[in-house]
């Protein structure tokens, strides 16, 4: 089936919108923030100014990302947590890679018992 470039772009944008929405909900749930998820913008810094998260929260976010997408973040991936945008791109990159590898590797690097 031939898919036009335009449809691909639209599908990607739609997917990313959904991933961002899910991630915002996850951030609010996981960190028990008293905040409407819609209030978080995609490029707002999560740490420091912005949402004012700290390193303890980053551990919590990596748990949330794992629960949602079975993707484990390591120390080296901390930059990924800088905004919803960068996190969404990372998640989608991983999903695309897992799909081309023939299915997600659920064992992951992270031992969640």
């Amino acid at each position: 089936m031939a898919v036009s470039g335009k449809e691909q772009v639209t599908a990607y944008a739609e997917k990313k919108r959904q991933v961002c929405k899910d991630l915002k909900q996850m951030v609010v749930d996981q960190l028990c923030l008293d905040l409407d998820p819609e209030f978080i913008t995609n490029d707002q810094p999560l740490f420091g100014r912005g949402l004012e998260l700290d390193s303890i929260d980053s551990l919590e976010l990596s748990v949330g990302v794992f629960n949602l997408y079975q993707i484990s973040l390591s120390d080296d991936d901390k930059a990924v947590l800088s905004s919803i945008n960068s996190l969404a791109e990372y998640v989608m990159e991983h999903q695309a890679k897992d799909a081309s590898d023939g299915g997600a590797d659920l064992s992951g690097g992270m031992d969640l018992g």
Binding site: L59, V63, G113
Partner: peptide, 14 residues
């Protein structure tokens, strides 16, 4: 106590 995950110097323990 069971370790769940670790990130940098922080670890979460159930």
């Amino acid at each position: 106590a069971v370790k769940k995950i670790q990130m940098g110097l922080l670890s979460q323990i159930q």
